[in-house]
Write a protein that binds this DNA or RNA. Sequence first.
DNA 1: TCCAGAAACTTGAACGATCCAATCCTGCCT
DNA 2: AGGCAGGATTGGATCGTTCAAGTTTCTGGA
Lengths: 329, 329
Amino acid sequence: MPEKVTIATVARHARVSRQTVSNVLNAPHIVRQETRQRVEDAINALGYRANQAARQMRTGRSRLIAARIEPTRDGINGSVLDRFLHGLTETADAAGYRVLLYTAPDDDREIATYGDLLGTYELDAFVLVGTKYGDPRTEWLADRDVPFVTFGRPWDALDAHPWVDVDGAAGTAQATRRLLDAGHRRIAFIGWPAGSGVGDDRRAGWHDTLLAADVDPTGLHRETEDGIAEGERLMRDLLVAAAPTAVVCASDSLALGALQAVRGTEPPVSVIGFDDTPVAAAVGLTSVSQPLGEAAARCVDLLTGVLDGNHESPPPVLLQPSLALRHTA
Amino acid sequence: MPEKVTIATVARHARVSRQTVSNVLNAPHIVRQETRQRVEDAINALGYRANQAARQMRTGRSRLIAARIEPTRDGINGSVLDRFLHGLTETADAAGYRVLLYTAPDDDREIATYGDLLGTYELDAFVLVGTKYGDPRTEWLADRDVPFVTFGRPWDALDAHPWVDVDGAAGTAQATRRLLDAGHRRIAFIGWPAGSGVGDDRRAGWHDTLLAADVDPTGLHRETEDGIAEGERLMRDLLVAAAPTAVVCASDSLALGALQAVRGTEPPVSVIGFDDTPVAAAVGLTSVSQPLGEAAARCVDLLTGVLDGNHESPPPVLLQPSLALRHTA
DNA sequence: TCCAGAAACTTGAACGATCCAATCCTGCCT
DNA sequence: AGGCAGGATTGGATCGTTCAAGTTTCTGGA
């Protein structure tokens, strides 16, 4: 069987010292071109790969990034995370990092997992998806100087940390504007209970756009937990109470429910959802689309910046969503 | 700042040698009860966690399992992988392993990634999702004695390896039987082109069930690539050519298309999909449901069996799907 | 009481890379 | 000839753990 290839094997093969091989790998510029070439040839010929465990032991860095995979809640919005994770894996890969998964049922257990991952695997950084007011997780990480990025802005601006987010208000504003342009005036909004950063933001986009167009939003707004059944219920309510001709929703789940409630109305009530999930594509629902691949890439950018010793805190990134037009609006 | 807690710190604190601490962790039975207790107390008091990199260096095992996250193809079926991954992470966690993600655009690049992951991270095992005839990946891994499991049976039984799968034929059979019980006789099937193991299997369940009930399946069968538009097209064709009263589909995407094609028919044509994706739940589509969490758990079981030196090849696992009843059948 | 043998524990070495400091070439410039 | 600098070598130490071999302590039986 083939003997294990270490840095010593390469050194022998290229007739240089271990140190020089190490230099070729970690500080190529201090090695003469000719020597470097010889070493690189040896590396390729032998199929050498630096042993990460040994490297990590000396340097204390694992080139591992942790991301949480959620317990498949709704299943519809789960696909957002799914797409984000894929993008993350791809970009991290290109930057020389790998993504490690973890799960946790609640914040406390999640924080306990941080400790575990940091202690046993010496993770380099965390990517948190979704943030809320007074998030204990970001606080814990920040207290310990653990590098991390959040996909989702910090809603209470106590302590700044690197983040990437998609401008939800701009998304609902875009949706609302499209409906206005199509001649609608009674445009409703179905969203989540006030107090969630994301939800408030998305509602504001709708609200402010109507005001800017001199349309009164009073009575055209409903709140509920996320879910298809909820969306349907509230839409029926709206139809009776406010007779809207169009509705913007805070999620595709809600929009899907709304869609069921307006089936058969004449003229058809326009519906726009949020997140552009596969479900939306399937049923032809117009929806606000988040640039998830881009978001993941920017997360990795921010992280590598911090990890490569860039001490000035990087500017946050706010990406613009687009409208995926289908036949419901 | 707090000094790093190593096995030596614990040893000093518990007044024993490093090796004894190591024994408490890896072979508790050879340490006297009293001593063990003292060491465990010290571990808890200091918050010690074994450094994985150092351990790996000595033992050559990383306690890392790799799984591939796919490039979000259809997006609908992507959620199957998503749920599987979540289950995998959870069960692996319980067994002391963690899941590392990777991506690859094609088989060749995927195999190259295997080499990289094995070389630099010394991964313990791979979990492959989906298998096909003559899969080069399983061959590569088997040739090198790399432990792996597949979620999906090996369709050409050349070389046996541990696998877990869901009995697709049983799923479509169950769906077909339900339709028969409901009085249907002209039950169609929309599936994938012959030659894919999974597709052939699912078709066989429908086909054999009809034969067993003395119903002639001739002319009631169509094949196509996966997709909503495709499903709709073929269903329209079937309606004209064969006048079915019900249809079983090889995927939810196809079923969703079929559903659009039969909208408005009287009496309504029953439709059953496959995979019980969120989309199916959303639109009320009856669908065959795979026990993905269970499948993931069994994958981990098989792997830990192999990794813990169990040399006899473990028996494959074939799980039974169930029918998620909704209002389309 | 003594000894064999097991049980319990301890001590050096090794895993593969990086870091560090001292040293040695070799060629170039003054 | 002497000084200098870039490039490469050398040897040793280090990271935290486990392995292999060694030493001490305990136990029971003659």
